[in-house]
Design a protein around this nucleic acid. Structure first.
Lengths: 296, 296
DNA sequence: ACTAGCATTCTCGAAAAATGAATTGTTGCG
DNA sequence: CGCAACAATTCATTTTTCGAGAATGCTAGT
């Protein structure tokens, strides 16, 4: 049993078909078929049920899958660990929520790059849920997500504390005015696509304000969202710091919320198991150093 | 990077030479050389320092080795997990101390075989230290060892409680007589080879009795040891139950010890991580059932 | 019944791995 | 000093494996 067989198996399991797996692995179906057959012969039991619309895992396949994933992840980690001589360098994938990336990360990343120029840092912005998945499957080395997070395979360190505010167009000077001036069902809620925890929180707030069925509108970018709010298309929920540093700052009003709704902690999460890259270690050292500065 | 490369690497690291590794892997040196070279090229850094008398791991190699071992173990476990449909069957390797194997295991193994005839159980008797190493590296699925054991990667369940007694030839009716009748330096200590915890305990006892430099004699078998004691070659430390069931029982005297020296717990240890085989699960069920019987 | 999608089978060529012999380099010994 | 013993590497050769492509078979939906 070779690692390439394992990866083939994992690809078929994930895509649910040999054709799709072959595509993903940049090869042809016949090849994948053979490898799977060989694997099944070696293990001595079928791993997939063949039916006309693809392949489904058998019990044995289900038991094998977690091993396959862990082994693949481990082999990736192994080369990194071997290459890593303690000097931070090489690739480092960090994930972040859009909002954190906008206001908190620029100085941090600048500092990091100044101290560790040999690290090729890549930043991916996604909703919290995707980030957690990314860290768990090894796509990301670490990520900034909205707390709280509790997962046995993750460790979290507190990175930033944010105050969330409800943002409306300029003309609404207070929450009371906003309530008075909007229709019964409430204003439109502007938010990122599903998976964003701020969006969930916004939903909660809307329910408490008596707008359980308000219209929702999804946008992909922060600037777009603030722009729409400024144009009075609706309201949204964002960290105060994000709004303050936005170019549209003058065109919107921020409405403070109760601490239970407004306080949110941004955590930096990483995998608990295995080797911590020197590059990641360096990143953490920047993070905690900046934290002190912020705290001071 | 394939698993076979990893195994080649591990073999070279363990044996400290390409020739020996090739032998172990049933192949030729040139082959091993190439694989190692390829691996080094892939990782991008040398894994071994070549010197005239073999190969030694570099820093990178040292960092890679634990991954190699874990991956090899994981691949073995993976096939077992996939094959394991919940019905105990297939191979099961159990280790045991010699003394436990002699008196405690026969009924247990009989019971196990009656309940799970499809399991091909193999028993290895070794000193505790070897057993712990065997369980950790996956050679053994579980083992009976002398407690206490504390290791983060192992779980231990209490299996048996033994009373250790000092065993001498028949003519010494009491410890006092033994002390009076033996030379200043004490009687010869008979014990298994190093790694046996009873042996360590015997050493302690000898020190407390004022025989720090008594002669030591090592034997490989239980019967041999009791035979030698019967012939008054020296004394040894054994569980009472072992002596009682020995054919030589009549030819020796057992001397009780203080609880701190005499009480010892036999633990059944297994790896903490990963999948517990159905076969092992079945074994544990026999063990705990028997335990109840013993306790009753 | 026809078609589209998907897995399997087969063959052939290319790539990779294993092999065996020759080579280099080092160490220990007469 | 030279030689034998040992160990790793290099190289040419053979064997095995892997991947591509075409053909086949199966099933579901129209």
């Amino acid at each position: 049993m070779e690692l390439s067989d394992i990866q083939t198996f994992a690809a078929v399991a994930r895509t649910g078909g040999i054709t799709r797996a072959a595509e993903e692995l940049n090869t042809v179906q016949s090849n994948v078929t053979q490898r799977i057959k060989a694997l099944e012969a070696e293990i001595g039991t079928p791993l997939f049920e063949r039916h006309s619309r693809g392949m489904a895992l058998t019990g044995a396949g289900k038991r094998l899958l977690p091993y396959a994933q862990r082994m693949a992840a481990m082999s990736r980690e192994a080369v990194l660990a071997a290459r890593d001589d303690g000097e931070p360098k090489g690739p480092l994938s960090i994930g972040s929520m859009e909002t954190t990336a906008a206001v908190r990360l620029p100085p941090l990343l600048a500092d990091f790059h100044r101290r560790f120029p040999a690290v090729r840092l890549s930043l991916r912005t996604s909703p919290t849920a995707d980030l957690v998945a990314g860290v768990l499957d090894g796509t990301l080395d670490g990520a900034f997500v909205a707390g709280p997070i509790a997962h046995p395979d993750l460790t979290a360190t507190s990175a930033f504390r944010e105050e969330l505010v409800l943002v409306s167009a300029r003309r609404w000077a207070s929450l009371a005015e906003l309530r008075a001036g909007t229709p019964e069902s409430g204003p439109t809620a502007l938010a990122f696509r599903t998976g964003c925890t701020y969006r969930q929180r916004l939903d909660q707030i809307f329910v408490e304000f008596g707008w359980p069925s308000a219209a929702r509108f999804e946008l992909g970018t922060l600037d777009g969202m603030i722009g729409c709010v400024a144009a009075d298309m609706g309201v949204t929920l964002l960290p105060r710091a994000v709004v303050e540093r936005s170019a549209m700052n003058g065109s919107v009003t921020m409405h403070a919320l109760s601490p239970s709704h407004g306080r949110v902690e941004t955590l930096f999460i990483q995998r608990r198991a295995g080797h911590q890259t020197s590059a990641l270690h360096g990143f953490l050292s920047c993070l905690t150093r900046d934290d002190d500065i912020i705290a001071a």
